[in-house]
Design a protein around this nucleic acid. Sequence first.
DNA 1: ACATAAAGCTAACATGCGTTAATGGACCTT
DNA 2: AAGGTCCATTAACGCATGTTAGCTTTATGT
Lengths: 257, 257
Amino acid sequence: MDAIRGDIRSVRYPLTGEFLAGRLREHLDENDLDYIEGLVETVEDHADGTRLLERGDVTNKSTMLIEGYVFRTIESGDRRYIVGVQVPGDFIDLHGFALKRLDHSIVAAGPVKIGSVSHESLRTVMQERPNIARAMWFATLLDASIHRKWIQILEQLDAPKRIAHLYAELHKRLELIGRNVPRALRTPFTQLDLADMCGVSAIHANRAVGKLRDLGVAEIRRGDLYTDDWDRLKRYARFNADYLYGDGALKLDQGWD
Amino acid sequence: MDAIRGDIRSVRYPLTGEFLAGRLREHLDENDLDYIEGLVETVEDHADGTRLLERGDVTNKSTMLIEGYVFRTIESGDRRYIVGVQVPGDFIDLHGFALKRLDHSIVAAGPVKIGSVSHESLRTVMQERPNIARAMWFATLLDASIHRKWIQILEQLDAPKRIAHLYAELHKRLELIGRNVPRALRTPFTQLDLADMCGVSAIHANRAVGKLRDLGVAEIRRGDLYTDDWDRLKRYARFNADYLYGDGALKLDQGWD
DNA sequence: ACATAAAGCTAACATGCGTTAATGGACCTT
DNA sequence: AAGGTCCATTAACGCATGTTAGCTTTATGT
């Protein structure tokens, strides 16, 4: 494995590419986005499977995902449990800024590009840029909302619907950062990855993928999902995007600034 | 059902009782705690099952749980999914301060006592009391950490272990706010509540309770759990308290103030 | 082109969990 | 004390999922 091969379309910033701001983008102006851009001190490529952060780590910088996917994982016994996925533009350890140590590990799912911001810089942000600070708090609250949805999904849906919901969520999250996915959503996920996200065995994840194929809902091959009817897939998965707060969920109208 | 009957032991504050600060307590001094106390504008009692907040609500105040338990619920189809539980001292809708609307409902589990803080007051706090603001961010990050653990639990454990883990978690969380539970952990949870928290049917929750009894791990009667060996129960549930950050997890040592 | 490893696929059997139905027990109301 | 309601319990049967094993396909490196 070597460095990233994925294409970065229409690069906006010389250093990090256009998606740095990610989910913050909607809530900040050009000025703030430039300011954040200036905070990034280093940009690195890492290969598939790289363990970027370990549970228990104490950090002095926070990391933003610029390109690729990462898993939030907790290992227990000899198995891995994936408790979250991040897409480009997401901070992946903003909680490491406020919490002493990390409660879970971060592992690259496929090749990734990441940027680092020192906690020292973040402290300055907290003091001097209250609206950016607020947007960062929003970002961690959105993570919590996504966590709650995952809990509901695990309680409510069977394995095929869980997998469909996962792709429906990614489809929407990519759309929210300006990446429209027309027909094929490409990911580096193996069926074992899907299994570890859905809390089922790899064999059963394979059955579930087969069922989605048989039903005509979607074709998943080596992580890439193909469908001509995203609406049908989302209906099948009982997907409702409200929890992603895509419509400017931040409360801006009550004199925050 | 009528108003609260639970005892409030060793009341510290005249208005709200000693546990107002809850999980914030460890990270703030007397001065800050008094300040928070002063923010509480109203205190109310509500009966079991009261829907305190609805998914989709837009709020202008945030609520702290003073006495009792509440569920975070998402309804879908004709079933209810419980995605979280809060104990006394927890803010239950701090995210409603930063997010435009709530992504889930809050329902009283048994009789509760709650206090309200206006968002206007919170905005003042954010500006004038950075260490309190930080503690509140911490509180929401801790919720996210608990959510991740629930995801792992649902992916990893079968129904009996999920129930054991739930009580183990509550046991620890109560300890962290100064309420040591010696032998019996009393809750108002029905077996249907346990089922909705664990993502299983009520019948299967009943089987799981029976298995815990047969194994001698714990006896659960009408929500109250009895055991003479909490360590054994926690081992059975693979409980590890790290994710609750009970040891002062907030990063205080790097010039936050 | 070939060898190898990783990933995907299939089958058979065991177990966890859902569903329906019916019974029993605890608490509340009158 | 009687009746009613909510909750807990048990049994029987079917489906979802785990486990073990072996096989096939695809990607990758030489």
